[in-house]
Design a protein around this nucleic acid. Structure first.
Lengths: 208, 208
DNA sequence: ACCTGAACACCGTTCAAGT
DNA sequence: ACCTGAACACCGTTCAAGT
């Protein structure tokens, strides 16, 4: 099947291999795999290029530098977190009072089961000022929490007002438990409680 | 003044310069300065050696590798945090009910005003399993929080029981607010509340 | 005992040159 | 338009050799 125009179909990879195709996607895929395999520390641009089967210089046609590739990974992480949270919000429609708790448990569960992802998303190996796409993806995930809060407010289960006022403490708690769990800091200090149980208990207290 | 023995006084640097003296301390000092100057990312072992006026290989007589030097920095951070928290616990002896709040505000204030320090302490650029000294220093800082909780429990201001049960949620909250503030994540999502105010508000809710 | 010099393998990044 | 090869400056780490 010959194609009419001279445009090389940037969105539609016909060939199985990507050597001529979307190397960009291949690079982010390899980057993802590498992060999950070796952690954010062992992440190297040259190794990513190697896995994609291209030269060390090739990635620079698609990403300004190493930080931008890591930012792409972080963005994917936020997208995945968002999808997970959105799915959880749908599931628990029955018992509204448990929605925030379910959201919290889901958030922490995702974080602790994707520790390298999570560390890239919130680590300091790239400058968020230089990668607004990451911030946008992050806002989308945060929006799931806001939505849940608004829904509870409308049902009178939470006091009315700017949902951000509730979201600040809640997100901080979720992030703190996630990070301290991933770093084994809670265990190191003698706290062996399961993170999901800890979150549930904490949220109950926080929400009065 | 001649010294009698042949032992070169490892603890007692007589000379003003440390070129023959305790290079170890000089290295951690330079490391500290470098972290505060360039952040945890720009931290390089060779640059530390340069600032200490020694060759690139010299640090290896005192630290197994780069990670161990960063661990030393983290340890110093925990010591400083501990001192700050302990001082705060002394100051606020008058109003006992405010002690946990004061502790929380002090913790967050220290964290956000020493962001690079804090990121080294909780970042993933060294393996805590390989540096038990860091864990010990961390436990000491955590102990300040435990002490405050116990004091409040003895005054009937908090329910009795294992103080760790309270400390888990509280520490998670403090850590979450600190990290999200340092990373500008709260601001990026439209939350512009001052971190100390946010902590105070959150702790009040959490403590019933 | 502690430090230097030189070396090794590796990185991020750039750039002329190929197709 | 996209990729390669070779190069540059820099790293972490090792090791024989100096004092």
């Amino acid at each position: 099947m010959a194609r009419p125009g001279g445009i090389p179909e940037p969105e539609n990879p016909k060939r199985g291999t990507y050597h001529h195709g979307d190397l960009k996607r291949a690079l982010t895929a390899a980057a993802l795999q590498l992060v999950q395999e070796k952690g954010p520390k062992g992440f190297t641009l040259r190794e990513v290029a190697r896995r994609a089967g291209v030269s060390a210089a090739a990635p620079y046609r698609h990403f300004a530098d190493k930080a931008q590739l890591l930012a792409a990974v972080a963005t994917q992480g936020f997208v995945q977190l968002h999808e997970t949270l959105a799915a959880a919000a749908d599931t628990t429609m029955t018992d509204l009072s448990a929605q925030v708790l379910a959201m919290g448990r889901t958030y922490v569960r995702w974080a602790v089961s994707h520790p390298d992802y999570y560390q890239v998303m919130f680590g300091s190996e790239f400058d968020k000022t230089q990668s607004p796409e990451v911030v946008v993806a992050g806002e989308r995930a945060f929006g799931d929490l806001l939505d849940t809060i608004v829904r509870c407010q409308r049902s009178g289960l939470l006091p009315a007002g700017d949902p951000r006022e509730m979201a600040g403490p809640i997100w901080s708690l979720l992030h703190g438990v996630s990070m301290l769990t991933i770093g084994s800091d809670l265990v190191n200090v003698g706290i062996r409680e399961d993170p999901e149980a800890l979150i549930e208990r904490s949220l109950r207290n926080l929400l009065l």
